[in-house]
Protein backbone atom coordinates (compact mmCIF):
# COMPACT_ATOMS: atom_id res chain seq x y z
CA UNK A 1 0.00 0.00 0.00
CA UNK A 2 2.79 2.41 0.92
CA UNK A 3 4.36 1.70 -2.49
CA UNK A 4 1.20 2.65 -4.32
CA UNK A 5 1.03 5.91 -2.37
CA UNK A 6 4.71 6.60 -3.05
CA UNK A 7 4.25 5.95 -6.76
CA UNK A 8 1.16 8.17 -6.87
CA UNK A 9 2.81 11.07 -4.98
CA UNK A 10 6.05 11.01 -6.97
CA UNK A 11 4.27 10.60 -10.28
CA UNK A 12 2.46 13.84 -9.38
CA UNK A 13 5.78 15.55 -8.63
CA UNK A 14 7.15 14.45 -11.99
CA UNK A 15 4.09 15.78 -13.73
CA UNK A 16 3.69 19.10 -11.95
CA UNK A 17 7.09 20.42 -10.91
CA UNK A 18 8.51 23.08 -13.20
CA UNK A 19 11.83 24.89 -13.17
CA UNK A 20 14.75 22.78 -12.05
CA UNK A 21 15.82 20.65 -9.10
CA UNK A 22 14.63 22.85 -6.27
CA UNK A 23 11.16 23.07 -7.81
CA UNK A 24 10.37 19.65 -6.36
CA UNK A 25 10.87 20.94 -2.79
CA UNK A 26 7.36 22.44 -2.40
CA UNK A 27 5.91 19.00 -3.19
CA UNK A 28 8.24 17.18 -0.80
CA UNK A 29 7.32 19.77 1.82
CA UNK A 30 3.63 19.17 1.25
CA UNK A 31 4.16 15.40 1.53
CA UNK A 32 5.93 15.82 4.89
CA UNK A 33 2.86 17.65 6.18
CA UNK A 34 0.33 15.26 4.71
CA UNK A 35 1.88 11.91 5.64
CA UNK A 36 4.18 10.89 8.46
CA UNK A 37 6.89 9.70 6.12
CA UNK A 38 9.57 12.14 7.23
CA UNK A 39 9.82 15.22 9.44
CA UNK A 40 10.64 18.79 8.39
CA UNK A 41 14.11 18.28 9.82
CA UNK A 42 14.62 15.16 7.76
CA UNK A 43 13.42 17.06 4.70
CA UNK A 44 16.25 19.60 4.96
CA UNK A 45 18.69 16.71 5.47
CA UNK A 46 17.30 15.05 2.36
CA UNK A 47 17.76 18.16 0.28
CA UNK A 48 21.27 18.63 1.63
CA UNK A 49 22.28 15.05 0.84
CA UNK A 50 20.63 15.30 -2.58
CA UNK A 51 22.65 18.44 -3.36
CA UNK A 52 26.05 17.03 -2.46
CA UNK A 53 25.73 13.66 -4.19
CA UNK A 54 26.17 13.38 -7.97
CA UNK A 55 23.08 13.44 -10.16
CA UNK A 56 20.11 15.79 -10.56
CA UNK A 57 18.94 17.18 -7.18
CA UNK A 58 15.26 16.56 -7.88
CA UNK A 59 15.83 12.87 -8.61
CA UNK A 60 18.21 12.41 -5.69
CA UNK A 61 15.67 13.93 -3.33
CA UNK A 62 13.05 11.47 -4.61
CA UNK A 63 15.45 8.55 -4.11
CA UNK A 64 16.18 9.66 -0.57
CA UNK A 65 12.53 10.32 0.30
CA UNK A 66 11.64 6.84 -0.96
CA UNK A 67 14.47 5.32 1.07
CA UNK A 68 13.29 7.07 4.25
CA UNK A 69 9.72 5.96 3.65
CA UNK A 70 10.01 2.35 2.51
CA UNK A 71 13.63 1.28 2.16
CA UNK A 72 15.41 0.54 -1.09
CA UNK A 73 12.28 -0.69 -2.88
CA UNK A 74 10.67 2.59 -1.89
CA UNK A 75 13.52 4.59 -3.36
CA UNK A 76 13.25 2.67 -6.60
CA UNK A 77 9.48 3.26 -6.72
CA UNK A 78 9.82 7.00 -5.99
CA UNK A 79 12.69 7.58 -8.44
CA UNK A 80 11.15 5.75 -11.39
CA UNK A 81 7.62 7.07 -10.90
CA UNK A 82 8.93 10.65 -10.76
CA UNK A 83 10.46 10.19 -14.22
CA UNK A 84 7.61 8.36 -15.96
CA UNK A 85 5.58 11.53 -16.79
CA UNK A 86 8.71 13.06 -18.35
CA UNK A 87 9.31 9.92 -20.39
CA UNK A 88 5.80 10.00 -21.82
CA UNK A 89 5.90 13.76 -22.49
CA UNK A 90 9.35 13.62 -24.09
CA UNK A 91 8.18 10.95 -26.51
CA UNK A 92 5.04 12.91 -27.43
CA UNK A 93 6.84 16.26 -27.73
CA UNK A 94 9.67 14.77 -29.79
CA UNK A 95 7.09 13.82 -32.39
CA UNK A 96 5.46 17.25 -32.52
CA UNK A 97 8.60 19.30 -31.81
CA UNK A 98 7.90 22.62 -33.50
CA UNK A 99 4.15 22.62 -33.06
CA UNK A 100 4.52 22.17 -29.32
CA UNK A 101 6.58 25.25 -28.57
CA UNK A 102 4.57 27.47 -30.91
CA UNK A 103 1.22 26.49 -29.46
CA UNK A 104 -0.62 29.41 -27.82
CA UNK A 105 -1.90 27.41 -24.84
CA UNK A 106 1.47 25.81 -24.16
CA UNK A 107 3.17 29.21 -24.30
CA UNK A 108 0.62 30.81 -21.97
CA UNK A 109 0.86 27.90 -19.52
CA UNK A 110 4.65 28.12 -19.39
CA UNK A 111 4.52 31.87 -18.85
CA UNK A 112 2.05 31.38 -15.99
CA UNK A 113 4.07 28.61 -14.39
CA UNK A 114 7.00 30.92 -13.65
CA UNK A 115 5.21 33.15 -11.12
CA UNK A 116 3.48 30.06 -9.68
CA UNK A 117 6.85 28.34 -9.15
CA UNK A 118 8.10 31.50 -7.44
CA UNK A 119 5.07 31.47 -5.15
CA UNK A 120 5.44 27.75 -4.35
CA UNK A 121 9.10 28.17 -3.40
CA UNK A 122 8.37 31.34 -1.42
CA UNK A 123 5.76 29.52 0.67
CA UNK A 124 8.28 26.75 1.42
CA UNK A 125 10.94 29.33 2.35
CA UNK A 126 8.44 30.94 4.74
CA UNK A 127 7.52 27.51 6.16
CA UNK A 128 11.16 26.56 6.80
CA UNK A 129 12.15 30.00 8.08
CA UNK A 130 9.38 30.63 10.58
CA UNK A 131 10.47 28.02 13.19
CA UNK A 132 14.05 29.41 12.99
CA UNK A 133 13.31 33.11 12.97
CA UNK A 134 13.87 33.61 16.70
CA UNK A 135 17.19 31.74 16.60
CA UNK A 136 19.80 34.51 16.29
CA UNK A 137 22.64 32.10 15.43
CA UNK A 138 20.68 30.55 12.58
CA UNK A 139 19.66 33.96 11.21
CA UNK A 140 23.27 35.14 11.36
CA UNK A 141 24.48 32.15 9.33
CA UNK A 142 21.66 32.69 6.84
CA UNK A 143 22.64 36.37 6.49
CA UNK A 144 26.29 35.43 5.89
CA UNK A 145 25.33 32.86 3.24
CA UNK A 146 23.09 35.33 1.44
CA UNK A 147 25.76 38.05 1.57
CA UNK A 148 28.29 35.64 0.06
CA UNK A 149 26.05 35.27 -2.96
CA UNK A 150 25.17 38.94 -3.35
CA UNK A 151 26.59 39.04 -6.87
CA UNK A 152 25.92 35.53 -8.11
CA UNK A 153 24.69 32.15 -6.94
CA UNK A 154 27.49 29.70 -6.39
CA UNK A 155 27.60 25.93 -6.49
CA UNK A 156 25.19 24.41 -3.89
CA UNK A 157 28.06 22.41 -2.38
CA UNK A 158 29.80 25.70 -1.52
CA UNK A 159 26.93 26.71 0.78
CA UNK A 160 26.62 23.25 2.33
CA UNK A 161 30.33 23.20 3.20
CA UNK A 162 30.44 26.69 4.71
CA UNK A 163 27.20 26.18 6.62
CA UNK A 164 28.33 22.78 7.91
CA UNK A 165 31.59 24.25 9.20
CA UNK A 166 29.73 27.17 10.77
CA UNK A 167 27.32 24.71 12.41
CA UNK A 168 30.21 22.92 14.13
CA UNK A 169 31.86 26.24 15.04
CA UNK A 170 28.65 27.48 16.69
CA UNK A 171 28.43 24.25 18.67
CA UNK A 172 32.06 24.50 19.86
CA UNK A 173 31.63 28.14 20.89
CA UNK A 174 28.37 27.68 22.76
CA UNK A 175 29.45 24.49 24.52
Amino acid sequence: MIYLLLIFEFFKIGLFSFGGGYATIPFLYHISQQYNWYSLNELTQMIAVASITPGPVGINAATYAGLKTAGITGSLAATISEMIPSLILVIIVSKLLKKFSDNFYVKSAIETLKPISCALLTSVAIGLLSPQISDIKAMLILAILLLLSWKSKKDPIFYMLIAGVMGVAVKLITQ
Binding site: G19, G20, Y22, I25, N41, T44, Q45, I47, A48, S51, K114, S117, C118, L121, T122, V124, A125, L128, L129, Q132, A138, I141, L142, L145, L146, S149, K153, P156, Y159, M160, I162, A163, G164, V165, M166, G167, V168, V170, K171
Partner: peptide
Protein backbone atom coordinates in the same frame (compact mmCIF):
# COMPACT_ATOMS: atom_id res chain seq x y z
CA UNK B 1 25.78 20.35 14.32
CA UNK B 2 26.81 19.94 10.68
CA UNK B 3 23.25 19.01 9.69
CA UNK B 4 21.90 22.01 11.59
CA UNK B 5 24.19 24.31 9.61
CA UNK B 6 23.43 22.58 6.33
CA UNK B 7 19.71 22.97 7.04
CA UNK B 8 20.25 26.74 7.00
CA UNK B 9 22.16 26.42 3.73
CA UNK B 10 19.11 24.70 2.25
CA UNK B 11 16.94 27.70 3.20
CA UNK B 12 19.52 30.05 1.63
CA UNK B 13 19.58 27.93 -1.54
CA UNK B 14 15.79 28.03 -1.81
CA UNK B 15 15.84 31.81 -1.41
CA UNK B 16 18.53 32.11 -4.08
CA UNK B 17 16.54 29.89 -6.42
CA UNK B 18 13.57 32.23 -5.98
CA UNK B 19 15.81 35.20 -6.78
CA UNK B 20 17.11 33.46 -9.89
CA UNK B 21 13.60 32.58 -11.12
Amino acid sequence: AVLWGVGIAVIALIMLTIREL
